[in-house]
Computed example of a mutant assay.
Amino acid sequence: MSKQSLPVVDLNAVACCPPIAVRPMEADQAAVVAPMFKALGDPVRLRLMSMIASVPEMCVCDLTPAFDLSGPTISHHLKVLREAGLVDSERRGTWVWYRVRPDAFRQLGALLEISTGDGGA
């Protein structure tokens, strides 16, 4: 399996898109948003994202022991989340600290919003 490099997502480009239930996405819009969903499509990354989002910030030293995976594998998954624009990171000495990018999740949530139009279920 070949390794693919994900481009860093421009969150300003994501903000341009109306909810997908309003009208079909243009190809270029889908190409911008897809890496974010792809990053969340892996169970390890989804769990990492959940752990990071549950606190203001989290050290990689606290994330790694929660998985039966090597440190480099966890670092790879965190890199994918960072390149997808879902988390920010900051190196402090030996360790890297991660925090969620709330604007990214607000924009993804807005894309997935479905209005029933009748005020009901």
Rank of each mutant, 00 (worst) to 15 (best):
M1A: 10
M1W: 04
S2R: 07
K3T: 05
K3I: 08
S5A: 13
S5W: 06
L6D: 06
P7I: 03
V8K: 12
V9L: 03
V9I: 10
L11M: 14
L11C: 14
N12R: 12
N12P: 00
A13E: 14
A13T: 10
V14P: 00
V14M: 03
C16K: 10
C16L: 15
C16H: 07
C17K: 10
I20L: 11
A21I: 04
R23L: 09
M25G: 04
M25V: 04
E26A: 15
D28F: 12
Q29R: 07
A30H: 06
A31L: 14
A31G: 09
V32E: 07
V33P: 02
V33W: 00
V33R: 05
V33I: 15
P35Q: 06
P35T: 06
M36G: 02
M36R: 01
F37A: 14
A39V: 04
L40T: 04
L40R: 02
G41A: 15
G41I: 07
G41W: 05
D42C: 04
D42F: 03
P43D: 11
V44G: 03
R47V: 12
R47A: 13
L48H: 02
L48E: 05
L48V: 05
M49Y: 07
M49G: 01
S50L: 10
M51P: 00
I52N: 04
A53P: 02
V55G: 06
P56R: 13
P56H: 12
C59M: 14
V60E: 13
D62V: 11
L63S: 00
T64R: 05
P65F: 10
P65W: 12
A66V: 11
D68V: 09
D68A: 14
D68W: 01
L69C: 14
L69H: 14
S70C: 02
S70T: 09
S70A: 08
G71S: 08
G71N: 06
G71D: 05
H76A: 10
H76W: 09
H77S: 07
K79F: 11
K79G: 11
V80G: 03
L81F: 02
R82N: 06
R82C: 08
E83G: 06
E83Q: 14
G85Y: 06
L86V: 09
L86E: 03
L86F: 05
L86Y: 02
L86D: 02
V87G: 01
S89T: 12
S89D: 13
S89Q: 11
E90I: 13
E90S: 10
R91M: 09
R91T: 09
R91W: 06
R92G: 00
R92V: 10
G93E: 00
Y98R: 01
Y98F: 14
Y98D: 02
Y98L: 02
V100I: 11
V100L: 05
R101K: 10
R101W: 00
P102R: 08
P102V: 09
D103T: 14
A104K: 01
G109T: 09
A110T: 07
A110R: 15
A110N: 09
L111H: 02
E113M: 09
E113S: 13
E113N: 08
I114H: 11
I114N: 08
S115Y: 08
S115P: 04
T116V: 12
G117Y: 01
G117P: 01
G117D: 05
D118K: 05
G120K: 13
A121C: 03
A121W: 03
